[in-house]
Amino acid sequence: MVLKSNVMNTKSLSDAQLVSNYISGDENSLSVLINRHQARLYGFIFSKIQDRDATEDVFQDTFIKVINTLKRGKYNEQGKFLPWVMRISHNLVIDYFRKNKRMPKFKNKGDFDIFSVLSDESPNAENKIVESQIADHVRILLEELPEDQKVVIKMRIYQDMSFKEISENTNVSINTALGRMRYGLINLRKMIDNHNISLIN
């Protein structure tokens, strides 16, 4: 009867009193604090994360921080226990999202295929051959262009020269070099259309 009465008394204590008792060594006070606030805190975390397992982790990490801080005697938010705990969980939720952004989480549904998440961005052998053929075709078409347009396009695309450098090398103004580039590309497109050439990889 005495024990039951003590538990009843503990449950009626304020958060501040329970925290104080816990710091003094009463482990039962922590149990009461967790029971009192678990639903609100868990609901808060779940409302942000929407994942039961991750919510469980954040909830646990929150109280580990709470326990560590209280036991180290570093708690100084007298009378504001719940807002303090919510703030800790809020920061951990942010950490969770930051971590997930760097390392996206994939749920295993049984039919998990590692290659569905590990895509290989490099072109395969077939794509490499097609790319090479397209480059050859463009070079052939380029030879059909008027000399001034061909020179500008070659300098710009294959030699990676700026229009200032092209204008200096061809003794024309930058605007003229730009115009030749423009008409060269237009003529290339026309040739491609006229010959029904497909350059799409």
Partner: peptide, 17 residues
């Protein structure tokens, strides 16, 4: 967040803490 407040952590989590 009241819609989520019927959710509670697992017993094992509380026990662990």
């Amino acid at each position: 967040t009241s819609n989520f407040e019927q959710l509670k952590p697992r017993k094992e989590t509380i026990r662990f803490l």
